[in-house]
């Protein structure tokens, strides 16, 4: 697939649900990977003590960690999608043929 419709001027070609999935799903995968690697090295209870949350349980730490990673990775996925859109809009909209 050389050109994805998302790069074409008609940005609405992709249904909203699929746009959301295309951001949330890859970020979910990478966030899972990041969570596994991060918590292999760091113990959430120790991080909790350092961070000032001594009552944080491990399950809680993993969960919060996972969602933080997911938030970050989804931001980067969303930015990628956003920047893939062409910046230069045609001056006269009638000149551009609908693809």
């Amino acid at each position: 697939m050389s050109t994805l419709p998302a790069t074409q001027s008609d940005k609405n070609q992709l249904p909203v649900v699929q746009q959301i999935i295309s951001v949330m799903w890859p970020s979910f995968l990478t966030a899972s990977l990041a969570t596994i690697i991060f918590f292999t090295v760091f113990d959430p209870t120790e991080l909790g003590i350092i961070g000032g949350f001594p009552e944080l349980t491990r399950m809680g730490g993993y969960t919060i960690g996972f969602f933080c990673f997911w938030l970050l990775t989804s931001i980067s996925c969303a930015l990628t999608c956003y920047f893939r859109r062409p910046t230069n809009k045609p001056i006269n909209p009638n000149n551009s043929k609908p693809s």
Binding site: M1, L4, P5
Partner: peptide, 12 residues
């Protein structure tokens, strides 16, 4: 199938 894939990927 490229062409049909592209249209099919994004159809309802």
């Amino acid at each position: 199938n490229n062409q049909s894939i592209e249209t099919e990927l994004y159809k309802k």
